[in-house]
Amino acid sequence: MSVLEIISAIFLLGGAIFCVIGGIGVVRLPDFYTRCHGAGVTDTAGAAGILVGLMFIAQPLVIVKLVTILVFLWLTSAASSHALGKAAFASGLRVDDEPIDWTTGLSAHPPAMSDEELAAEESE
């Protein structure tokens, strides 16, 4: 293995690890907005690691194309994350700024009204 191949392998491994971390984040994080942050890790560091890793073993002309792909990925992933967040916010998805019990995905505080009270209110 040449030096370039070893550097490439290190970057590819780093990118792959960040992709997996992003995936774990999407599963573990409790609500919609925080999951967007998890997906952001895959979009930025994961994609950058893999593409930079590929640049070290590519032909010069291919490097130009890989750089372009990276630029467009970073440009569009920012725009799409924003569109996703804004759509959720505009359609009224609540932002929890209180502590969240991540094992259940529910608010750590008890709800203001119990289920029976809510049912009674709806039937009136």
Binding site: H37, G40, T44, A78, A79, H82, G85, F89
Partner: peptide
């Protein structure tokens, strides 16, 4: 500015 904030993981600009 807003896109820079969105691109850094951990922060998303909503509006």
């Amino acid at each position: 500015h807003a896109n820079t904030i969105t691109l850094t993981p951990g922060t998303i600009s909503l509006d």
